[in-house]
């Protein structure tokens, strides 16, 4: 990945990532721009303050939480580096006013997979967080209704984790085949 901290195409106008770096210089663990996608990796505890900043700063105005998902990096060897944390929760924000996007990533530990909820800031986070809980088993602190959304309640395990075999079936009725 290319590290790109300083370049800006238009001098004077900061990109959302640069603004974020200005404000939270000590809290951003890593940042990069890859194929034009701006990404910032932040710590677990700073998520809500960063999210609030993105939403409420008039020059940023990220009014859409476009997508929220997670990635499981178990056994990941891309770039020959293993990740320190097993999961990453990935947020894609979009600003309708400025037509800008930014990606925020939050590394989450395997032993205590818990992230603060954003469902009170963006209503769209509600279902996305349920989906991440269903598929990855990452809990969202303060979520009003954290239960399975795609799979049924009797389903054991979390399907999109890398250690869940893709064809391990748990039928409600009928044989396991």
């Amino acid at each position: 990945m290319t590290e790109n901290h300083t370049t800006s195409k238009q001098p004077g106008i900061l990109t959302p990532l640069q603004r974020l770096q200005e404000k939270f210089s000590d809290k951003i663990i890593e940042s990069h721009v890859f194929r034009g996608d701006e990404t910032a990796v932040i710590g677990l505890l700073n998520l809500r303050s960063v999210a609030r900043f993105l939403k409420e700063t008039p020059e940023m105005d990220f009014n859409f939480l476009m997508d929220l998902t997670a990635v499981d990096y178990l056994f990941y060897t891309g770039g020959r580096v293993q990740k320190e944390f097993r999961f990453e929760v990935v947020y894609h924000f979009f600003s309708l006013k400025f037509n800008k996007r930014i990606r925020i990533k939050v590394p989450v530990d395997e032993k205590n997979p818990q992230v603060d909820t954003l469902s009170d800031l963006w209503a769209s986070a509600n279902w996305y967080e349920r989906e991440v809980w269903d598929m990855f088993g990452i809990q969202f602190k303060g979520h009003p209704n954290l239960k399975r959304i795609l799979m049924y309640d009797q389903f054991e395990g979390h399907a999109l984790r890398k250690d869940y075999p893709f064809n391990k079936r748990q039928p409600l009725i009928g044989p396991i085949n």
């Binding site: 869940y164 075999p165 064809n167 748990q170 039928p171 009928g174 044989p175 085949n177």
Partner: peptide, 13 residues
């Protein structure tokens, strides 16, 4: 869809 979510043929049910 040979995966965890799909019934492998309804004739099993």
């Amino acid at each position: 869809y040979d995966n965890y979510a799909t019934v492998q043929g309804i004739d099993t049910i």
